[in-house]
């Protein structure tokens, strides 16, 4: 591994990103612009998350990378091997062992602890973009807490469908102040954001924004008093480990439409079954 700095980015860039992260931590939920760099993976594949991880990772870190809850899917595998090649840092599939976790679209089922950092990959950071295409305008809306329109959207859902239609990337209010998109995690995971002891960081590479939820910060999913926020439920437990109260993936098993439900979080599932899944770095 010659010619590259530790974790690919040069130290100046890391410093710049860390400054943005500090600002983000100081203002929970607020989107901080940063000088997003060209990374050796395409936009839409986690460049923001990778830059956040790269600016934080040190030789003593233990890195876990997941995609949709699994350690062994394409995106997770390629990002993990990128970091192994550029840092030589130890990697793990076990949530409990990791100090730094980069995730696409899920929060691990195993509760996080103080000292851990969870980095989310974010496609669109702006929760009001559906309403207002102008960046200058959405910034003003955040500045004056002009969030009525977001509730209008929920109102419309309830009017048309009897309930809120959004099931992932469900908007939240951070620290009672900023409206935030938690990235396309299922709404099932939203409650895990609230007062989490770990540091939660969000990186959007294409949109060049970083935001953060510091440990033990209140994160409330938007709802109405008479239509409170609800998470998904399944009628059956995981077919492999029997876990209930976790997020399950639906898997089609035959051509007749037979289906089974298994844990989305592969590490959690394996742990329950008492086995270790092998990861090839």
């Amino acid at each position: 591994m010659s010619g590259y700095n530790f974790a690919f980015l040069d130290e100046q860039t890391k410093r710049m990103i860390r400054r943005s992260i500090l600002k983000a931590v100081a203002i929970p939920g607020y989107q901080v612009p940063f000088g997003s760099r060209e990374m050796p993976l395409s936009y839409g594949w986690g460049t923001g998350g990778v830059q956040v991880t790269a600016s934080l990772i040190g030789p003593d870190d233990v890195l876990k990378v997941i995609d949709q809850g699994a350690d062994d899917t394409t995106n997770a595998v390629s990002i993990r091997s990128f970091f192994v090649r550029t840092t030589g840092v130890r990697t793990t599939a076990r949530t409990r062992e990791a100090t730094l976790i980069q995730s696409r679209h899920r929060i691990p089922e195993t509760p996080l602890r103080a000292g851990q950092v969870l980095v989310f990959q974010v496609p669109i950071p702006e929760p009001l973009r559906w309403l207002e295409p102008r960046e200058a305008e959405t910034r003003k809306m955040h500045a004056v807490e002009d969030y009525g329109a977001m509730h209008v959207r929920l109102y419309e859902d309830i009017t048309r469908h009897g309930k809120v239609a959004q099931t992932y990337d469900y908007p939240v209010r951070v620290n009672g102040r900023y409206l935030m998109r938690p990235s396309p995690i299922p709404k099932f995971d939203n409650p895990k954001l609230d007062r989490n002891p770990a540091l939660l960081l969000f990186g959007a590479g294409r949109e060049k924004r970083i935001y953060a939820v510091p440990p033990h910060t209140s994160v409330q999913s938007l709802d109405f008093e008479d239509h409170p926020f609800e998470v998904e439920t399944w009628r059956e437990p995981c077919a492999l480990c029997g876990a209930a109260g976790v997020f399950l993936d639906e898997i089609v098993v035959d051509d007749k439409g037979g289906r089974t439900f298994v844990c989305s979080d592969t590490d959690h599932c394996a742990e329950r079954r008492g086995r270790r899944s092998g990861i090839r770095p």
């Binding site: 002009d146 969030y147 009525g148 329109a149 509730h151 209008v152 959207r153 109102y155 419309e156 309830i158 009017t159 709802d223 109405f224 008093e225 008479d226 239509h227």
Partner: peptide, 26 residues
């Protein structure tokens, strides 16, 4: 807001002021 219902249009200022009861807003 031409793309949301009449009820949502009238309810929005209430929501912007912090009202959170769907039934009462409606």
């Amino acid at each position: 807001r031409m793309s949301v219902s009449a009820g949502a249009n009238v309810g929005e200022p209430l929501m912007a002021l912090g009202q959170r009861h769907y039934g009462r807003i409606r």
